[in-house]
Each structure stands twice: as structure tokens, then as C-alpha cells.
């Protein structure tokens, strides 16, 4: 890791309010996708009570130190950073471990993020669920945010609370990723439409991720979908989020057209479960 100072590191909080909507999956996939695009990226797991980012990245056996030891100066930052083997542009830093005696404070968070911002282009902060202390810690150092939600009433409501908090903290821009979209249900009007969600939350849409079984397969293996360049819909969606973050103009998919076309039909035939 060279010590060249980034001109302006992007410090992005990834949050949702509600748990289980895909924060950590997005952080892992986005981290890999950005690293593949040549960006020096670090993912910071701010959810130290229930940390899982290491597991999704397949790095769970390689964590020795955490941000807490760095702050206590019992180790150097580069000792605590866990570099991804296949994608050396990506590093993981857990904020702490579940057995931690003292909780990190917002000031600790600012210190550690400032250290990371010196040597990375992107600092992705995986925020814990909820809007209490864990959120406040994680949000303390964030400059911008990605709110991820699903087209369900509870997830959208919680996202709205989080957006309100981000606005009062002056975090901007705040962009939206809509996860686990089911085109068929949307077509049948049995799921909130994409426009409904963006209208209600009044955020620009950064990405649209279709419901994809491959996500579960990839978490089983600890290999994010974006790592191996698979053509699954979710992998493409995460790659597109990364490209849009860098300022590329990538058109959003249209869920209503996602299931049509000869190629899609052929693919469905080939990927159809036969037993």
C-alpha cells in the first residue's frame, strides 16, 4: 500500500435503517467492483456487534486486529487492514470485535476514517441496522451516503427515517439503491413500483438490483458476485452502481423489460430448475 495521499477520498456510508435489506452485500460487492475498476478501496465494517462483512468477503479467518487496536496504538493501520487476496485493491477493516469492552465513539470513527482517507480513494462504511448509537458512530465521519432499501413498506419507512437523519447531519449526496426487485410482482402491481419508492423517498436512484438467488450462493462461498464477473443480474447491477458512483452514465435497467426478449428467454430456459 503506497502512502500517496488521495486528492479527495470518497467517504460513503452504506445504510438502510432496517436490517436484512442488503447493506453488507452491497458493501462487499461494491467494494470489489470499485477495486476492479482500479480504485483503491477500503470497506469499514462499522457493525462490530454483529459483524458480517468479513464473512461475505471470505476474509473471516484473516482478521487479527481491528480499528480499536489501531486507535489504542497497539498496532499500525497497515497491520490491521486485511487485504483481499484476489483483489489487492480492496482492504477490509473491522471497527471492532463483538467482545469489545469499550465502544467506539463518533470521534474514534472520525480519526480512523481520516487515517483511511489518506491512503484510499474510496472508504465504504457498512452501517449497522437501526438509528441509535451504532448508526450515529458510523455516520459521524461520512461525507456522502447510499441508502439501500427494498420495495416493502417497512424497509421504505425505515429508510425514510435514516434519510431524515442524514439530511439533518448534512450528509450529501444521499443516493438510493433499490434491492430485491421482482419484475413479475411489479408488473402485477403486487409490489411497490420503482417510481413509487423514489417519489416517496425523493432520492436519486443509483441502482436497481433484481432479486437473485445467486446472491445467496455467493455468500455461501464468501465470494461476492462481482469478484468473478458472473453475468447474474445482481452482479451486473452492483457493477453498474460502482460505475455510476465514479460518474459514468450507465442507464438503469427497466424491470418491466427484464423478462422479455429472446436472450432472456433462452437464458431462462438454460437456468430453469429441472430438479
Amino acid at each position: 500500500m503506497d502512502a500517496v495521499t488521495s486528492a479527495a477520498a470518497r467517504i460513503i456510508l452504506i445504510c438502510s435503517g432496517k436490517g436484512g435489506v442488503g447493506k453488507t452485500t452491497l458493501t462487499a460487492n461494491l467494494g470489489i467492483a470499485l477495486a476492479k475498476l482500479g480504485e483503491r478501496t477500503v470497506v469499514l465494517d462499522a457493525d462490530f456487534g454483529l459483524r458480517n462483512l468479513d464473512l461475505l468477503l471470505g476474509l473471516e479467518n484473516r482478521i487479527v486486529y481491528t480499528a480499536q487496536e489501531v486507535l489504542a496504538e497497539t498496532c499500525r493501520l497497515d497491520q490491521a487492514l486485511v487485504k483481499h487476496k484476489q483483489e489487492p485493491n480492496l482492504a477490509l477493516l473491522p471497527a471492532g470485535n463483538p467482545r469489545m469492552l469499550e465502544w467506539l465513539t463518533p470521534d474514534d470513527m472520525k480519526k480512523i476514517v481520516a487515517m483511511l482517507a489518506e491512503r484510499f480513494d474510496y472508504v465504504l462504511i457498512d452501517c449497522p441496522a437501526g438509528i441509535e448509537d451504532g448508526f450515529k458512530n458510523a455516520a459521524a465521519a461520512a461525507k456522502e451516503a447510499i441508502v439501500i432499501t427494498t420495495p416493502e413498506v417497512s424497509a421504505v419507512r425505515d429508510a425514510d427515517r435514516v434519510i431524515g437523519l442524514l439530511n439533518t447531519r448534512g450528509v450529501a449526496p444521499v443516493q438510493l439503491v433499490l434491492n430485491r426487485v421482482r419484475p413479475k410482482m411489479m408488473a402485477n402491481q403486487e409490489m411497490l413500483a420503482v417510481d413509487d419508492v423514489t417519489d416517496i423517498l425523493a432520492l436519486p436512484l443509483l441502482g436497481l438490483v433484481l432479486e437473485d438467488e445467486q446472491v445467496i450462493v455467493s455468500t455461501n462461498r464468501g465470494e461476492p458476485l462481482t469478484l468473478n464477473g458472473t453475468a447474474s443480474p445482481a452482479a451486473r447491477a452492483y457493477q453498474n452502481v460502482a460505475r455510476r458512483l465514479r460518474g459514468e452514465n450507465v442507464p438503469l435497467i427497466d424491470p418491466s423489460k427484464e423478462r422479455q426478449g429472446l436472450r432472456a428467454q433462452l437464458k431462462r430456459m438454460l437456468t430453469k430448475k429441472i430438479f
Binding site: 413498506v153 402485477n188 403486487e190 411497490l192 413500483a193
Partner: peptide
Amino acid sequence: APSASTAKQRLQLVLAHDR
């Protein structure tokens, strides 16, 4: 009725109160 419109109405109401 399709449930999406119900969801939208309920959300708008609850969010107006939340906000």
C-alpha cells in the same frame, strides 16, 4: 385491489406522521 397501491397509500400516510 392490487396491493402495491395500498402499500403506497399506507406508506404516504405513515411517513407524513413520522416526518
